[in-house]
Design a protein around this nucleic acid. Structure first.
Lengths: 163, 163
DNA sequence: GGCTATCAGTTCGAAAAAAGAACTTAATTC
DNA sequence: GAATTAAGTTCTTTTTTCGAACTGATAGCC
């Protein structure tokens, strides 16, 4: 498949990656969740080429993950805010952070931690079943065609079995 | 920052992306979760340049996400299996799939669905707090330096506030 | 032995994307 | 007019991916 055709793949991961899969994009989104909103701030924190940053911000805006919001009129200035669509990437961000905390930290532990203000604890996420509330274990999941599946959906033989 | 320095960033997301952030890598991992194990199978499903695929498989193996396991001896053949470290990417995969299901599907719905065999339902994931069990809402989370934080960790001003 | 097939890569030239730096535009202030 | 701020845009070079072919190590068949 071609990278630019990801959004047409019969697979939601591929479609997601068509929006967030380019180099640096998830780090831009991370910074949005940390409250960063302005071009110069992103640029200073990320230290990436300005035109790459501009490209990523533009694509996220076009995809509806970010919205440009004016913060002053004279001269007109805009900043980038997460939309609800963008905020909905939070579980993915948490999962990726938790994985990095666990597998990519040294003996000193994770560089940052997240506090759940509702209960007051420093915490991590657990991905549970929306139907029964049990944690989702890959060995207990099977995959099947969904309502939007094309007639010739290519699922490998082992799709219903343990990875 | 430079892409090849991601694993040294004081941020677990960046460190995670140093392993899974290259173009195509997450789709390789998706296929692993679907039970795909062999080079030709990955190649046939993904349709990407063979040396890019080989590079991604190699990097994932070096990072400990995949393990090469012999499946025959004459001639010796090996396949790629998710390790525990690799399986631990499941919550992230589910979150990304769910996001794509919700925001990147047409009116006909998602192309694939996941059945939780424990309860028997077609389902999605919910990211909940490991401490209190409530769903994690980005507006209820704050970020702070962790035990492995460097002395000069750069958290933006708004890091404790709503995104 | 030669040929074909299978499998898992590796190599090579072309195209695309990212890196690095400078420039542009549109204000505002002194 | 010059300097500053902010948000980009343009240009050249380097790196990564694309597309295709090739290689190496078997095994089986004639």
């Amino acid at each position: 498949m071609r990278w630019e055709e990801l959004d047409r793949q019969p697979c939601s991961l591929a479609r997601t990656l068509s929006v967030i899969g380019d180099r640096w994009t998830l780090l831009v989104i991370r910074d949005c969740f940390l409250g960063v909103r302005r071009f110069e701030q992103f640029e200073a924190r990320l230290g990436i080429a300005r035109h790459v940053l501009a490209d990523r911000l533009k694509k996220l805006t076009e995809a509806g993950v970010l919205a440009k919001v004016p913060y002053q009129e004279r001269p007109r200035r805009e900043e980038y805010r997460l939309t609800e669509k963008g905020l909905a990437l939070h579980p993915a961000l948490i999962a990726l952070l938790d994985w990095g905390d666990r597998y990519m930290s040294g003996p000193e532990g994770a560089p940052m931690q997240r506090r759940h203000r509702t209960c007051g604890h420093v915490t991590q996420g657990i991905m549970v079943c929306a139907e029964c509330g049990e944690p989702l274990d890959p060995r207990e999941m099977s995959v099947e065609p969904g309502p939007g599946a094309p007639g010739d959906l290519a699922l490998p033989e082992r799709a219903g079995k343990t990875p």
